[in-house]
């Protein structure tokens, strides 16, 4: 069925009743934790809005004393995120623990593997140089990646990333998400708690997570909420301002990096509408002025959204069992 943008009356197809949504998600989270036979919840808080909302929902669902907020700082990200996590824990009245993961990652060879991958593209790279991964523009061409490094004099340079280097770099940096998850489950085992995951709809639907890393959880309370809806809930839940307004990052690379430049290719407000409109069969020409793109750009974005769903099926797939 072809829908048009006005179908939902208010003109904002992603508008929601924040209080009712919070009550429903808290009820469902409590039911899910009980169904799993666990008696509380662990939430790793990054200082971002997604984990902030999940933490607040967990506190609503279970009470602050049945929730543990974990802060897992890592040297490429810095301590500011952990400080925000502490502020969140204090605001919610929930217990919190800090477990720095840098030493574990060092011992596992995360940084060594990452640096080797970067040196295959920038032979003079030094570990002190900040860096990030950037995708190609969403033009309808196939997605390719470039590596950006910042030299000690402050200049930056961008080079295309060959496939082998890309795989090695992603494999190395995915260790960060997997070590974070290891710590989360260690605490969950110790306390008899469930692990709550923090992906929003964009991340879940588009496969923007690490299998066995941030993709692993017992309950994913906000996986059906668009990013703009998560921000709406953050305001309604009264999260500290700096968390409720924080731009989404990848929590992975040492140069500041948005999810837009690494993965989605569009800012989240637009990406939300693109995903919604594609699934609602809104014609590209109708959506285009609403999101500030040409109809061709919207078609390219629709195409990418579909492609990403296919390409990331493996990330969602449970283990195959054999007869």
């Amino acid at each position: 069925m072809v829908r048009n943008m006005g179908d939902r009356g208010s003109g904002d197809p992603l508008a929601l009743d924040a209080d009712a949504t919070i009550a429903r998600l808290a009820d469902c989270t409590r039911a899910a934790v009980r169904e799993l036979g666990r008696r509380g919840a662990v939430v790793a808080v990054s200082g971002g809005v997604d984990s902030g909302v999940v933490a607040a929902l967990a506190v609503r669902a279970l009470g602050p004393q049945r929730v543990l907020l974990l802060r897992l700082p890592e040297r490429d990200i810095g301590d500011a995120a952990s400080d925000l996590g502490l502020e969140l824990a204090q605001a919610l009245g929930a217990p919190t623990e800090e477990e720095p993961i840098t030493a574990a990652l060092e011992a596992l060879g995360c940084y060594r593997r990452r640096d080797a991958a970067i040196r295959s593209v920038f032979p003079d790279y030094e570990p002190s140089w900040r860096h990030k991964l950037v995708r190609s523009a969403p033009t309808g061409a196939l997605i390719t990646f470039s590596l950006v490094v910042e030299r000690p004099d402050g200049s930056t340079e961008r080079r295309a990333l060959p496939s082998a280097a890309y795989r090695a770099l992603i494999a190395a940096t995915n260790m960060k998400q997997r070590v974070r998850k290891l710590i989360e489950y260690t605490w969950a085992d110790q306390l008899g708690y469930a692990v709550l995951g923090t992906p929003n709809l964009l991340e879940y639907d588009q496969g923007f997570f690490v299998k066995g890393g941030d993709g692993l959880a017992d309950v994913k309370p906000i996986a059906r909420l668009y990013k703009t809806q998560v921000y709406t809930l953050a305001q309604a839940l009264g999260l500290p301002d700096e968390i409720a307004r924080r731009a989404p990052t990848t929590e992975t690379f040492s140069l500041p990096q948005t999810q837009e430049e690494f993965y989605f290719g569009h800012p989240y407000e637009r990406m939300d509408l693109l995903v919604w409109a594609r699934d609602a069969d809104v014609p590209a020409g109708e959506l285009a002025p609403r999101v500030g793109l040409t109809p061709d750009d919207v078609e390219a974005a629709y195409w990418e959204i579909g492609r990403r769903r296919v390409a990331t099926r493996y990330l969602h797939a449970a283990a195959v069992t054999l007869d």
Partner: peptide, 10 residues
Amino acid sequence: DSLGFVELVE
């Protein structure tokens, strides 16, 4: 997949 295309291009 998309990374496969990068290999093909290489």
